[in-house]
Design a protein around this nucleic acid. Structure first.
Lengths: 226, 226
DNA sequence: GCGATTGTTCGTACATCGTACGAATGGGTT
DNA sequence: AACCCATTCGTACGATGTACGAACAATCGC
């Protein structure tokens, strides 16, 4: 927290919130704490930000910008892999974004990201639906792996599990860990990604179509930006 | 909320909390609300449950029980697919569990689940590391797909995005949606799962088949039980 | 019989959170 | 001078998780 006040604004507030999240964890990001960081009154933030969720959306969009490639490789598999890897690394460093992004409306950088993904697939012969499906499947995996990897770094109480294993109730679990802890580090991310891409590419994609409806549609205006 | 009080206990409290989560959403689950549902004082819950996170862990483990198969198919791909599908459907109905399970210590049912997964792979020629890797990759995808699918059912503000598209800033996004909304329903879950399993299977391990049955141990523990 | 011990219930109190409301402040226009 | 409007923010409210310890009931040693 520096002494002089910075000019308030959406980006400044988002940046301050991000700094706090990085330094003290996402749960430390409160309106009061962010305001304090900016030497401003708590309620002053609400002039630029509708609600805390809106603030988080700003943080999210700021993060997504890190997933943008300066240039999209010609080879589409390489391009998708590179984007996915960047996205993945963002989530590993900011696991909270995995959750908050699911409820945040798409911002400018999110759209740039999507545009870039489509650009990567532009030269392929895939149909629109095939493109969207591939991107969705890849994202599913990226999000899922980051979610579980981030969690696995947390320390959880293993006492109960250890007791159960020692008691002999779970022979297969006991057996597979008998040789000590097995590390399946980040290698499985590349591995899974390859499985998805290599299979999807050369083969003729299946036209499994099962239509589904989704009633979507809302309206809202962008909040004030001075 | 019925009038007569039920006998308090870990399971009863967890069940009540689950009922509230199903009926009113996970965010409606508060200690006061659960206690009210059980016609008990708020603080009475803390005799059976260390903290709210502990309560949530009870809920999680109760949910996992739904992922357990009565019998494990001999064909390992079919077995894994069935387990994954069940797990997936749990998360679609209880999206909050995606997050809470990441920080919850493994409970009894979680361990049974793991044991069952290992049983499914018992007759393959995979090494321990290969088994764990496969299970991890599959879970990554299951969690990821459920996470994003649950989110896509939420209603989010699309006005900003629509405006950007209409403004012509994102030609590829505009193009791909020009033919109306494209629905890539739950088909992509099966599709992705197949990609992962079919590729992982044949090349590495030789799958030999032999029947096997499911053992189950049961024990109790954790915090006070009256 | 009685006091002590132990298991169970829960009322009160506190810190922290998001944010509704509306009063202050200050710079331009007229 | 009078008005307007953008911007700041102090106060207050209701909700949350839970620490603390009092209250009550059942059981046991004597």
């Amino acid at each position: 927290m520096s002494r002089e006040k910075v000019q308030l604004g959406r980006e400044a507030i988002g940046a301050a919130a991000l700094a706090i999240a990085d330094a003290e964890g996402f749960e430390a990001v409160s309106m009061r704490r962010v305001a304090q960081e900016l030497n401003a009154g708590t309620m002053s933030l609400y002039y630029y930000v509708r609600t805390k969720d809106d603030l988080v959306a700003v943080m999210d969009d700021a993060l997504i910008s890190e997933a943008l490639l300066p240039a999209v490789p010609r080879n589409w598999k390489r391009a998708i892999t590179e984007i996915a890897t960047r996205t993945h690394s963002i989530f590993l460093r900011h696991p909270w974004a995995l959750i908050s992004m699911q409820s945040a409306p798409p911002g400018l950088n999110a759209m740039r990201h999507m545009e870039q993904c489509l650009e990567a697939l532009a030269e392929t012969s895939m149909t629109a639906k095939q493109k969207l499906t591939l991107l969705a499947i890849v994202d599913d995996f990226v999000f899922g792996h980051a979610l579980r990897e981030a969690a696995s770094e947390r320390v959880v109480d293993m006492e109960f599990a250890a007791a159960q294993i020692a008691q002999g109730n779970f022979p297969r679990i006991a057996e597979i860990f008998s040789g000590g802890r097995i590390e399946i580090g980040k290698s499985r991310f590349r591995e899974g990604l390859c499985l998805l891409l290599e299979e999807y590419g050369p083969r003729r994609p299946r036209a499994s179509s099962k239509p589904r409806r989704t009633p979507h549609g809302t309206t809202r205006s962008a909040h004030k930006s001075p």
